[in-house]
Design a protein around this nucleic acid. Structure first.
Lengths: 202, 202
DNA sequence: TACATTTGCTAACGCTGTTAAATTATTTCA
DNA sequence: TGAAATAATTTAACAGCGTTAGCAAATGTA
């Protein structure tokens, strides 16, 4: 029965439209303006229909979060491919993370809870861990073998993440610093941490 | 007429009770659970009364934000007093910032938009700038005179802020890393930035 | 054509922030 | 003290929210 497939395809399409419409609304009016009825309007249905595709509003946010992590992982892999030297790879990957945050601002917001209230973050789906694992592994690769303990890698990983995510958060909530300062802070910080990583502290 | 004063005192008291009740609700049930009717219940009034004291819900959040900055400034001043050496003062001030974020978690959340949706942040009241100015000035004090440009201070200030705020945000949204790793990341980062600040890069 | 199933909508519930009107309490003044 | 004016609070309502139940229309199946 090809009709079953066709119907399934239509359902998938609607599901996709819901996600697209949601993201579009958020891009136009922000996360606070996202409502089930507004999504329904955009896909030319009524609100209860959405519950055929997502169990509730939070499930939509969770799915958008997942999509965000998939896109981020892609961009980070691409950044990695551009270099051969692990240190350059790592820096390039963090830069990809940085660029993603602003190119896909709304996705980053729902992924990391910047300026969006709900979304409990409890359900740790594996897609969420791909980007962090990539960075973690790359850091491990760079750290000299005799210092390469899990804890030490953790520390460096969180240091990287903190400074990058912190700078992003600051830029997203209060828009203070200039682009030039952002660039400087970011490259300074990345270089600084890399330096502290590769040079043995005796 | 002392009765006028008495009435004013009662009004101030109620205003204060609204803020206290709001913070209490948030501490018990989180920012999402804060509603005008719930606040009214707690102060044993009905919801519209609150509008006699605050123009809307956002105004309550804004005032709590202001209170947060006042408390933070106090704690940072205290941290500064504990040391004589500027470098130790700066590190102590950042540590105070860090401690404040977790001791007054709910205030920090509304101040820096971690896990709370509304609060536009537009109205830049002067109280908000006290803590950042304190840190900025202290950084300026430490940086060698021949490098002490506004831009350079900005870069160092944002680097500090990013790593500290980033680490806090990460801890508040996903609670991953252990306390030991947090301590390490924080002290590593602070020392690292201080080092990069005082040593001239030729 | 008759039945079964899917599809979508309407209406409703309880919640939200907010406002206008009505009610109650308090003060003022003759 | 009693009436009028003012202030303090409440009730009722509006529009919106997420969500669910029940009904109507369209579709598929026999």
């Amino acid at each position: 029965m090809g009709s079953k497939d066709r119907i399934q395809r239509l359902k998938d399409e609607t599901r996709c439209k819901i996600l697209d419409a949601s993201l579009a609304i958020v891009k136009e009016e922000g996360w606070a303006a996202l409502s089930m009825r507004k999504i329904a309007d955009k896909i030319e249905y009524t609100a209860p229909i959405i519950y055929e595709y997502f169990s509730n509003k939070d499930a939509i946010l969770t799915e958008l979060t997942r999509i965000g992590y998939l896109k981020l992982a892609e961009q980070m892999k691409e950044a990695e491919r551009k270099h051969a030297d692990p240190i350059e790879q790592l820096k390039s990957m963090w830069l990809a993370y940085w660029n993603f945050a602003f190119e896909e601002k709304e996705l980053y917001q729902v992924m990391y809870g910047v300026e969006v209230n709900c979304c409990v973050m409890e359900n740790a789906c594996p897609d969420m861990q791909v980007p962090s694992n990539m960075l973690w592994d790359k850091i491990a690769e760079i750290i000299p073998e005799d210092m390469r303990t899990d804890e030490y890698i953790d520390i460096k990983y969180y240091t990287f993440w903190s400074v990058v995510h912190g700078l992003i958060s600051i830029n997203m909530t209060n828009r203070l610093s200039t682009d030039e300062i952002n660039r400087q802070v970011l490259s300074d910080a990345l270089n600084g941490i890399v330096a502290s990583m590769t040079v043995r502290t005796t």
